[in-house]
Write a protein that binds this DNA or RNA. Structure first.
Lengths: 112, 112
DNA sequence: TATAGTGCTACAGTATGTCAAGTGCTAAAT
DNA sequence: ATTTAGCACTTGACATACTGTAGCACTATA
């Protein structure tokens, strides 16, 4: 019932949180502010984005710099551990290009 | 508002569905039946597992063989496109070993 | 002085995942 | 011969997670 801290399991747990991978991918293009990050990612709503960023900051994958409180100006950027996720994103990228030819069908509902 | 079919985006969408990556990882160890797969993965509930498997089969990443209906005996195994996800799992594995030293803290709630 | 933009938070609603139980049947154990 | 135990799931009630839209306090530009 426990994997007794298995790093792979934990890593998957983290990366499967909705939008996390998208956010990391967007951050690979360099530091950004909140709203522009949302735009880069495309489709996240601010509440979720804020939540994911909090988590990523907490884990030390992302660094948040508040340049000024008012007018608000913040920058999010990947730390080393975050940048290392590039290899993961690239692997997904490769796989996607090779194996996805069209839009995915809608996932089957759990109770239907 | 649209990524106009960007394979990376789609791939991330797929892989971030809860348990999908865990399931793929478990299947990399070879064909299994439903219940044993659940045990290998550890923590999925049958409804979710069934749903994910349907989706993976539908996308052609997993092949389902029904050896007998009654007594029920089924085998799930990765097809080629599924096996190719090994590189993704490995990248995550590497990253996890290098960057995760202890259990993750609980994700921050969206509305709190 | 309006307008648009910044980084968020709040709330209600919906989608998504979970828990426990159960089904119909058989192979192995008692 | 009769309990177990196991297979592959499904069902329905519930909890949690995510979404959409609005809004705040404020400034820089037009």
């Amino acid at each position: 019932m426990d994997n007794d801290f298995c790093p792979v399991f934990e890593a998957i747990q983290l990366l499967q949180e909705k939008w996390t991978l998208h956010i990391v991918r967007a951050l690979l293009d360099g530091p950004v502010g909140f709203n522009e990050l949302a735009r880069r990612v495309g489709g996240v709503n601010p509440a979720t984005l804020a939540s994911r960023l909090d988590h990523l900051v907490e884990l030390g994958l992302v660094h948040k710099t508040i340049h000024s409180t008012m007018p608000p100006r913040t920058a999010y950027e990947l730390c080393d551990a975050g940048v290392e996720l590039q290899s993961v994103v690239e692997a997904i990228d490769d796989w996607g290009r090779r194996n996805l030819t069209g839009p995915l069908s809608t996932p089957v509902k759990v109770s239907a």
